[in-house]
Nucleic acid binder design. Structure first.
Length: 567
DNA sequence: TCGGTCACGTA
DNA sequence: CGTACGTGACCGAG
């Protein structure tokens, strides 16, 4: 059945895959296409090992949840890499890869009594006379018949080839571009797997922690309301009489004014300074913490996102800015208080590792600063930087971070000047990014990701406004180059670990990616092997990623039964 | 019902 | 006046 289809497809060669809403699977090579079953996909993966091409990992999730695909070319992910931004639906991806303006993508008009739309004959072709994908196709008509599904898969192959050319062109200046495209694609696979697998949670422990903060689980809405009122009363007791809605910042501000506390806003860090001024401040801060747990990380959160002992959210491989992974369901912002509830299943442990001082090390690598690279040879690179600058370690750290983040306040100016003298290459790299941001000139990360700057807003209220906007864009540019490159390295690490676990047949899986931290759920007896893979995987990923071996990357690794046991 | 603002958890 | 994300409550416009 698939003989002609696969005749010329070898390991790593592109092979398109689509999944129709009704579950029909279509596979297409340059030569032919076929409707297949999921077992066929698994067999092709095992015997040939092609580079699977799809419009997006989410669009083939039913396959990815079953078949652990090794090689991928994710059109949406590569599109985001090459063209920046976040929108990456097929119509936009097609447009960009064909040199068309995405703003001219046709939209599907609602059915109109007097306009029956295109004749059915027109819908045979996926591409309209304007060169864009037909909106009827992108809206779902692509899946209507086997013939259309085949055309849709062929269109994906067409885009993949064009993207490959674009990536190859990029490689002249960004040698990592192709590797980045592949790693970002595989990271999308990992995202589907993370979403399906979830993070192991001991619900009983979680309930105990939440109960200790907000009280017992209410058994009715009346009880919930009473709990809420009691929380509020604990604050309002300290306030002058009169109704105040604690959930309304304006009213909180006026309450504070009535007790003699003047603030521009009521953010916690500001109120921290005023704890001693009036008892209501302390009560309010305590209320905020409890209210946060109750509303965002409380029983409702557990009920909504935890099933079968797993906390599940949806993952994206790349945000719209610098390219970090994102996750919903609070997976990336779970309060430290709740982490003791992240417990490995019986007979399992977590192998947990986080990258040490990743951003300054990445800066040393991507800028090619030999002096800063030399500092990365030590476990704590701020120590040699401090002695180089002739300042103490805390000052050196603040100076380096300030340079990377564009800090403008504080008294780091002196150290910043010394930084310029000691590490001119690294500082120049950051300054270039800052200037690009200020003038709205798009830039690319080390790995080739385009950082877009929207056209600067011409109608600023004032010169001062325009200046602060430009400064903000400058900081954004600095940060994006570092954060983005760090995200690229992190994903290389993650997909390397994933591949080696699969290659060694170890039934362990990555269950959390947290920007610079990797959490792997592993059978107890495989913990040592997994730890070795995680540690060595970093060296392997870094060796493939970095321009040379001058920068040392380090990970802090631990094997623990619960997440909070580490660190 | 929606987008904007404030606020806050994480890296 | 470090950036980024997701979430939830509230506001005011529609």
């Amino acid at each position: 059945m698939t003989d002609g289809l696969l005749a010329a497809v070898g390991r790593g060669d592109p092979l398109a895959l689509t999944v129709a809403p009704d579950g029909a699977l279509t596979v297409a090579s340059d030569a032919a296409s076929a409707e297949v079953e999921i077992d066929d996909v698994a067999r092709i993966e095992a015997t040939i090992g092609p580079r699977w091409v799809w419009w997006s990992a989410a669009s083939v999730a039913p396959v990815l949840e079953v078949v652990p695909v090794a090689r991928a070319w994710d059109l949406a992910a590569v599109h985001r890499l090459v063209h920046g931004g976040w929108r990456a639906e097929p119509a936009v991806v097609w447009a960009r890869s064909h040199g068309l303006d995405p703003d001219t993508v046709p939209v599907l008009r609602p059915p109109d009594l007097f306009d029956l739309g295109p004749a059915p004959a027109d819908l045979v072709e996926p591409v309209g006379p304007d060169g864009h994908l037909r909106p009827e196709w992108t809206a779902g008509e692509w899946a209507a018949t086997p013939a259309r599904r085949a055309r849709w898969a062929a269109a994906a192959l067409d885009v993949a080839a064009r993207q490959r050319d674009a990536v190859d062109s990029l490689a002249a200046i960004h040698p990592q571009a192709l590797a980045t495209a592949r790693a970002e694609s595989t990271a999308e696979v990992l995202c589907v797997e993370l979403g399906a697998g979830g993070l192991p949670i001991d619900v009983a422990v979680a309930e105990t922690i939440i109960g200790g903060i907000v009280g017992a689980r209410p058994r009715s809405t009346a009880e919930a309301d009473a709990q809420r009122a009691e929380r509020d009363a604990a604050v309002l007791r300290h306030a002058p009489p009169g109704r105040t809605d604690l959930r309304n910042p304006a009213q909180v501000r006026s309450l504070l004014r009535r007790v003699g506390v003047e603030v521009d806003d009521t953010r916690a860090w500001r109120l921290e300074q005023l704890r001693d001024v009036h008892p209501v401040v302390e009560a309010l801060l305590a209320w905020r913490r409890i209210e946060r747990t109750a509303t965002t990380y409380g029983y409702g959160w557990l009920d909504e996102h935890v099933r079968d002992g797993r906390l599940r959210g949806s993952w994206t491989g790349s945000d719209g800015a610098a390219g970090r992974m994102t996750a919903s369901a609070g997976l990336h912002s779970m309060p430290a208080d709740l982490r003791p509830a992240v417990v490995a299943e019986p007979g399992h442990v977590f192998v947990r590792a986080d990258l040490g001082q990743i951003e300054p090390r990445v800066l040393a690598a991507v800028s090619g600063d030999r002096s800063l690279a030399a500092a990365t040879r030590t476990d704590d690179m701020y120590a040699p930087v401090a002695s180089q600058l002739g300042v103490d370690r805390p000052t050196a750290k603040v100076a380096v971070l300030g340079a990377m983040y564009g800090q403008t306040t504080g008294h780091g100016a002196q150290a910043l000047r010394r930084l310029d003298a000691a590490y001119p290459v690294a500082m120049g790299y950051l300054r270039d990014a800052d200037e690009a941001g200020q003038v709205g000139r798009s830039i690319r990360t080390y790995g080739g990701r385009l950082i877009r700057f929207g056209s600067t807003n011409a109608n600023e209220v004032s010169e001062r406004d325009a200046r602060s906007r430009a400064a903000a864009m400058g900081r954004y540019g600095r940060n994006a180059m570092i954060q983005g490159a760090a995200a690229e390295l992190f994903k290389r690490w993650a997909v390397t670990v994933r591949a080696r676990l699969a290659g060694d047949g170890i039934p362990a899986s990555i269950v959390l990616c947290l920007h610079d931290e990797l959490l792997v759920h592993a059978p107890l007896d495989a913990a040592g092997a997994v730890a070795a893979i995680v540690a060595d995987g970093l060296q392997q990923a870094a060796a493939g990623w970095a321009p040379d071996d001058s920068v040392r990357f380090v990970a802090d690794l631990s094997v623990v039964p619960r997440w909070s046991d580490a660190k």
